[in-house]
Amino acid sequence: MDEKPVVLVEGLHKHFGAAHVLKGIDLAVDSSRVVCVIGPSGSGKSTLLRSMAFLDPYDEGRVFIEGRLLGYRETDGKRVRDSDRNIDSVRSVIGMVFQHYNLWPHKTALGNVTEALRVVRKLGRREAERIGVEMLAKVGVGDKAHDFPARLSGGQQQRTAIARALAMRPHVMYFDEPTSALDPELVGEVLQVMQELAGEGMTMVVVTHEMGFAAHVADEVVFMDGGEVIERGPPDDIFKRPRSGRLREFLDTWRSRTI
């Protein structure tokens, strides 16, 4: 197995104007591991994930994807933003799933999944569709291949979005609050797909409010608050033996809400 972490984050800082939203985050995600990032709204967890994909460029620190620096080029101690082409190349091993699915409404479910296969991988229509159908079936929406997103439920849309990311054969999957926009009864079907992925050994970083999922599926849980990592560890430690006051308070609030 590869010794190097798939994703390595060192001393990450990010500002939005005067707001200091990430204050020196370190994170290493090894191959086939599932890391869940939890924390209250505004704690910076989504910004961390977006910075790890360079959708929000970070200001200080470094993000390495399979050992390659993401987003910047460093020469003589100075660093400049990398070209789009290099950024695309480094993040080509990342698959990302968003809170609001971000499907393209003018394309069918299958069209969404095959688009990048055709345009980026330059596969022929037949080969792209073969993979597309396979991926949609894998996430349980094989029968919806020719429906437009507007005809799908939120859960089906999110599973289609997962299939779209998986079709590119990513080495790591990022999930940015993948179930937060879903009706409660649809959350389970998406979490199940994610759990199956984890079971197959997919490397995953999941920003989530689903404590049950984090407790059962994660290898490591990272608790963030105020732009910092407050606590991290195996789920048992985080959920059963929180050390910091802030994590205890966060878990108490969550428990009182879910009763």
Partner: peptide, 27 residues
Amino acid sequence: IPPGQIEAARMLGIPRRMIVARIQIPQ
């Protein structure tokens, strides 16, 4: 066009000009 659609396309490595031609203009 919601920016999220563009971000999804960028994460899949779709070049900007193809995002314009295939995601933005058709919609």
